[in-house]
């Protein structure tokens, strides 16, 4: 009786491991294909297409050299970094005071503020009104057009607010009795205690800005301002390919390789910080519960 039970349990565990491995492979296989496509030399590609497995000894960096050899990619990467850093900084500077204010229980007008903030969270009139606002302010070809509209996310504000609410009220009161004003309380008491939430929300914003491609496409028409995802999209849909790569008749990589290499180049910065991002996102998402 007992033996059959443990045998059942072991079989069950094997089944689970097989299932998880299948899921794992389903996620990894497409990436593997991208890698092979990016590194395949042209002669193998023309001879036999893209094989399933390509030994790393045969890999060529030709596609990467061609993409990075053109000024477009480094510039787009720099643009992405500028948008991400500036966007995250502005977002935090605007989000923290609102979250702190809303977490202050005896703030007069708190209920009204909360209602006003929640309303824009729940009702959105769509793309065109904001598009008219931005173009009306002459923000086209300006990074502020990408950064400002999403700069304060109501969801992030609420998550941060609930963190502030959880901080002991006594700490603030002690500082207030010592004669500190709210500005000083926030700066000297609250913020030093809030590093985890600042990092979490900062990462939420940073990942958003790094991945954003629609608003840059909408508001920037100067190619020199283009961030990485927009450049990648242009390469993928092969719109005027020659503008973006040193591509010539003697090229030793195929267009497919160039596209795949573009995907990898755009992915790599995210992969480098991913372990870190994953940890904070997991925490932050669980704090926020199902909202999101």
């Amino acid at each position: 009786m007992l033996r059959s039970k443990t045998r059942d349990a072991i079989l069950f565990q094997i089944g689970l491991a097989v299932f998880l491995t299948i899921i794992l492979l389903l996620i990894l296989l497409p990436f593997w294909r991208v890698i092979v496509t990016a590194f395949i030399p042209l002669d193998i590609y023309t001879r036999e297409g893209i094989p399933f497995f390509l030994s790393p000894t045969e890999w060529t960096f030709e596609a990467f050299n061609q993409l990075l050899g053109h000024s477009m990619f480094p510039r787009a990467a720099l643009n992405s970094i500028i948008i991400t850093l500036l966007g995250t900084a502005i977002s935090l500077v605007l989000t923290v005071p609102l979250a702190y204010g809303l977490s202050t229980r005896n703030l007069p007008g708190r209920k009204l503020l909360m209602t006003l903030v929640l309303f824009v969270y729940l009702f959105s009139p769509g793309l065109i009104p904001i598009y008219l606002l931005i173009t009306g302010m002459n923000l086209t070809n300006n990074y502020l057009a990408i950064i400002l509209p999403p700069a304060v996310s109501v969801y992030n504000t609420l998550v941060m607010m609930s963190f502030f609410e959880g901080l002991p009220e006594d700490l603030k009161d002690a500082a207030r009795i010592d004669g500190a004003n709210e500005l000083q309380v926030l700066w000297h008491v609250i913020l030093p205690l809030s590093k985890p939430i600042l990092l979490t929300i900062g990462l939420f914003y940073a990942v958003y800005f790094w991945n954003e491609f629609f608003t840059p496409l909408l508001y920037l028409n100067d190619n020199d301002l283009m961030p990485l995802p927009v450049l990648l999209r242009n390469i993928l849909i092969s719109a005027s390919f020659n503008e973006y790569v040193e591509y010539n008749a003697f090229s030793s990589s195929s267009i497919e390789s160039l596209k795949a290499a573009g995907v990898l180049i755009t992915m790599i910065p995210m992969l480098l910080v991913y372990p870190w991002i994953q940890r904070y996102f997991t925490k932050g998402t669980l704090v926020g519960g199902v909202k999101g």
Binding site: I27, N211, F213, P229, K259, V263, P275, Q278, F281
Partner: peptide
């Protein structure tokens, strides 16, 4: 760690991956 990863990639990257597939 592996199955969370695609969530953090933009749809443009996903488009590139889908083209390859």
């Amino acid at each position: 760690t592996v199955i969370y990863l695609p969530h953090f990639l933009s749809w443009v990257i996903m488009f590139g991956v889908l083209l390859v597939i």
